[in-house]
Each structure stands twice: as C-alpha cells, then as structure tokens.
Nucleic acid binder design. Structure first.
Lengths: 196, 196, 196, 196
DNA sequence: TATGAATGAGTGTTCATTCAT
DNA sequence: TATGAATGAACACTCATTCAT
C-alpha cells in the first residue's frame, strides 16, 4: 500500500508520461497495465501504489491538454488587440501546446470516449468553451469590419480544424517551428490563398 | 459451409455496417464480437460463418473510405480547369464522403493503427497519394500565378485538416448541406477571412 | 458464448452441485472459479457460458435451502393437529433437508453474508418467516395449554438451534436416521431430560 | 525492531480486537490486511511490526474462545453437585462467553477452517474435549437416575446446539441477561415444554 | 514503529476464435 | 448458417508479505 489518498493523478508524474506515450501509440484499450508497468520497470500490480485506476491515468493525460488549452484561450481573449492579433495568439499557443505534446494531444482527441460518462461531460464542456472563445474572436472581427461577413461558426471550425489536426502530422524534427507554423496558418486564414 | 472464398470482406455487407457503427462509437478494441453478433441478432461464434477475423471487418471499414477518397482525388485531378475549380471538386467529393459516412470516417481516422503492420502500410500509402494530389493542385495554382506564393505543403495540409475534421463535428440533421459546406470552405481558403 | 439469457441459475445444475461442495469445504471466498472449473473438468472462463457471476452460484446454493425450508414450514403450519405433531412435522422435514444437504446447508448458514445487500435481505426475510412459523406453533401450544407457559420466543429459538446445528455434526453414514433424530429431538424438547 | 519474540499473538492486543470484528463481519478471507490496518490507523505493511502472519491473528481470535470454553468446562466438571446444577454452571459460563464475545464466537464457529491443518487439529481436539465433558455430565445424570434414560450423546448435542447458536441471534441490547437465558435454557432442557 | 514502494501470485471475468452438432 | 460449449490467453485489479528508509 502507499499514500492512502492518491486523489487526482498529477499530470507530470513519470507514470502519466509513460501512459501518454503508450496510449498514443497503442490506444487506451490496446495498452495493458503490464505495458505501463514494463515502461516503468515495475510489475503491473505495483502501479497501484501510485494510482487508483487505469482510467485515472487517461484522465490525467486528457486533462493536461484540456486545461492548458482553456487557459490559453482565456489569455488570448483577455489580451485585447485586433481580431487578427487574437487569432495569432490562439494559434501560437495552441500549436505550441499540441505540437509540443503530440502524444498527449493524440490521446486527448482519440481516447476521451473511454472515460466514464461523467468525465466525458467535463471534456465536452471544456471543448465547447474553447470553441466558443474562438468563435467570439471571429465574430467580433466580422462585426467590427476587420473580417468579411463570413459565418463565424464555420470559419472558427475551419481554423480549429487546422490547429487541432497538427497532432496528426507535425514533426518536431522538421525545420518548421511551431511559431512559424502559427504565423503561416493565420496568414492563410486571413489573407487566403488567392492572388490579388 | 458456403462461401469458402471469404477472402476480402465486402464493404456493404450488413455485418460491416454494424461493425462500422460499433467501432465508431466504442472503438475497435472496445467492441467485442459479441457486440457485433448482438447487432446482427446472432451469436458471436456465428459471425465466423461470414468472416474470417475481426481485423478483416476493420479493414473493410477502413478501405471503404480509403478507396473512395482515392478515386475522388483521381477524378478531381483528371478534370482539368483552374486550381480553384479543382479544389472545389475535391472539397465537394470529400465532404460528401466524410459527412455521408461519418462512422466509417471516424473509424478510418481513429482505428487504422489496429490493423496489422502490412495493412497499415497500405493505408499510409493511400493517404500519401491523396495528400500528394491535393498538394499538386495547390502547387500548380501557385506556379501559374492563380495563388499567392505560399508553401504548397502547408496550404494543402491546412485544407486537408479542414476537410478531414468534418467527421468530428458535422451534423447531417443541421441545415448546412455538404455542398454548401464545401463551397464555403473553398471560398474561405482562397479568399481568406480578411476584408479587402 | 451460449444461452444469451442465463437468468437465474438452476439449483440442480451440476455446476451448482460442484460449487456447493467447494463453498462448504473452502468457503465462498476461498473457492476460486478455477477450483470450480477444475471440479467440472473445464477451464474457469468456460463456466461463463453457463452462469453470469460467481455470486449467482452462491445464490443458487443458498436459495435451495431457503426455499425448501420455507415450503416445509408452510406445510407443517397447514397440517393442523396438536402443537407437538406440528413440531414433529417441522423436525422431520428440517432434519431431512439439512442432513440430506449438508453442503448446501453449510453454505446457507456460513456464506450468505457474501451475497449482495439486496440478496441478503431476501435471505433474512425468509429466515424471519421460518422462525415466525415455528414460534407460532409453540405459541399456540402454550395458549391452548398443551405446553407449559414458557416464553415462546426463547423456546422456538432453542428448538431452531437444535435443528439448524444438525449441519455441523450429522454424519449420514451413522446408524441414526434423520427421522429417528427428529423423533428424539421432539421428545427431548417436549418431555425434557428430567426423570418424573 | 522490538519484540523479536512475537511468537503467539496475545489475545487482547488491540490488533486482535480489530481483526476479530472484521473477521466476524466480512469473514477471514474477505478481510484484507489493509482493512485491519485501516482499523488500526496504520498502513497494512506496518502491521508486520506486531504480528507475523494474518493467520496468527485468526488463531488468536479462535483461541480466545477455545481456551476459555475449555476452562469453563473444567470448572463445571470440578464443581460437583447434581447433574442439573452442573449443566446450569456450563450454561451460565458458556452463554456469558459467547454472548459477551459474539464477534470472537462468530469467528470461532465460522472461520476455523481457514487455519492450517495442524492448527485445525488443535481446535477439533479442544471441541471434542468440551463435548465429552458435556456428555459426561448428562451421562452421569442418566446413570444416577436424575435424568430419563435418553441417549446422552444426542442430548448433549442438543444442548450444545442451543448454547452454540447463541452467537447467531443474541442481542446484548435486549432485556434478556445472559444468566436469565442460561436459566431458561436449563429449565427447558430438563423440564421440557410439555405441561404435566 | 511506521512508511511507501515493491513483489509475485492470484482474483473474477472477458475475449477472439474453434468446432461438433 | 446458426448454436452452445469450450479454449487459452489476456485483462484490471487485489492480496499477503517484504524491506530500505
């Protein structure tokens, strides 16, 4: 036995790091506690001196992305400036978060449905708030004439798609920094592809 | 026993439909043969009169999206016209495919890693070809001056992100048709968000 | 998979017989599904083609005694006659039940607390009804002057103790039949040990 | 580390008290060392500074009843007097022991089979001696004409049943003292239920 | 004395698959 | 084609116990 009240699992505990990597590569259900134990160099049963359930590990991984992305959105909203500047702030932060934590982000987008219904609700609500924030920025840009009169819902989903999808393809070893990527994505969204 | 030649599983067999729905909702590993049997109204063991392995079902689901999207890309490339027109053709077809087969698309994007390594290779190659096609269209647009001198790789990934992400959020019951969505996405990509 | 709706486990199924023997000898918690499987000559997992949970087996064992003893008490109460005759009827039936199913009876008396709370309630209620029946008989004997004015509650508990304890010591190989035992117990209870 | 001589566990150590309560309520196998640790306010592993094995705890609980009941029987046998007086002495002491230590008694009657074979032998022998003592008293009563010519074995088992079963039902909060209960049980056994 | 971490065996149960009928 | 029974491996998790600190 160990710490009697394990409570919520800390995001940066080595066991969560190991779990994140395995969940990303093999999926939550495809990862056994023995796999995680092996990754830690201990027996599967010994993991339970540190955590209460496998699902708690999934929650820790998911929450790391969820909570940081919400904080980032708050910061961007609080920042003021033009809508473009705010979109840029969102992009900078979100690309850094997702590209800098690809394994966590992969688990966040693919595995959250393995959480219990109550825990899923928390994830959905958090995502809703994040999306509402992005929509708000674009909405303001449209209302104040900085942007064309597009449908803010669709435009925000489009931009969210670009940002979210980063977890699928971004290679940190490449020559494209996350800031450069964010710059280009904002430019593409605002200025478009077409020649003038 | 009939149908000794089970070989590749037909995509439109009812059992594949049932499997697609379950794989999308509960994941490949979270779906048992019992679940699929229940969905078919037969016992788990009886499924093996129709298929050889569970993985064959996953392959059938994945291939449906994979092969249709490749055909669609071929058609768009073969069509000629301006780059914008070609992007529009890709968007129309891809949104229709993904939004019209959300369960299949969900499985395609989330579960392909549960295939055997050899089968995964086929999926990756197919995706690579599709992405190369998209990049080619944008590249030509840039070279011929129809588009600004953006990085075609990044622009094509951005557009692919928008299209792919449709499986996550599109609600067929909404008032937005897949053609309208495709129109708006092309307009957004080419003309951008910014007011002129 | 097997019979989709296993429902309540039948008391006379061989697996229940095996379980009763093991639960009696090693206790419910001391008996593993592997033990039961071994007793059946199949693997532990194969048991689940026939039952749903281990606890269902315990319930089946417990219910066999519980339901038969209730029926027996009903019959004795319905029979009429003197109080002594009714006590005799109870004794005959109960000793036959307990001595003839010692393993089931042992499990009934020792292991019912391993049932879920809801299932425990059913057992307690059944026992309460049985004890009330016995008390009723003695109470009538006292009221009608057939018995001395003893406390019917205590007298009925005393007689129940004698009957119940049979599961502990009765050896069917001995020369004492269950009917003889019942005769002597009634005589002892009614006439007492003392010389006149 | 102190107390290298743990050897036999003292019966009145708080840890034995805690264990007795848990073993009675949840069974020996249903009680984990963690449960016992929690009851003591320490961690499971820390228990091993006080005891050597879990089974030692069970032995301590069982021995408390076993040894006291043997002493009580010795005392009753040594006391002299009529058979009825001796039965009364046994009843007074045994009811007090069982009713005053219901948890210990429950464990004694239900859990002794979880002891090692060698330890079980000690329990069985002790029980045998106790039962022989009781039979001896009744046997003398019959031989000397104080009792009717009943089978002393059966009569002693019947009385033992009444006494032993007390652990099942006696409620110390009730208005029946253990002495009153013993009185009535002896009266019932000797005088019987029947009116003269 | 107590802790926190670990062990290694074991728990009830599920699973994809097989096969005689 | 479908069934019911079975397999053998795996699963998340618990357990009594050990031990360095």
């Amino acid at each position: 036995m160990a710490r009697e009240d394990k409570g919520t699992v800390d995001y940066f505990t080595p066991i969560v790091e190991v779990a994140a990597g395995l969940f990303a590569r093999k999926g939550y259900r495809g990862t056994s506690m023995r796999d995680i134990g092996r990754g830690m160099g201990i027996h599967a049963g010994s993991l339970y001196a540190h955590i209460e359930t496998k699902e708690d590990l999934l929650e820790a991984v998911v929450h790391r992305i969820m909570e940081q992305s919400e904080k980032d959105m708050q910061a961007a909203l609080a920042m003021g400036g033009t809508a473009r500047e705010q979109l840029h702030e969102v992009a900078i932060r979100d690309v850094a978060l997702i590209a800098g934590n690809r394994e966590y982000a992969t688990v966040f987008f693919h595995e959250w449905r393995n959480l219990s219904p109550e825990r899923q609700v928390k994830v959905v609500r958090s995502r809703d708030r994040w999306e509402a924030g992005l929509r708000e920025i674009i909405d303001r840009g449209v209302r104040e004439g900085e942007f064309r009169p597009v449908d803010p819902r669709l435009a925000s989903i489009a931009f969210a798609s670009m940002l979210n999808w980063v977890y699928v393809w971004y290679a940190p070893e490449g020559d494209l920094s996350t800031d450069q990527l964010a710059d280009q994505y904002v430019e593409l969204l605002v200025d478009g592809l077409g020649a003038r």
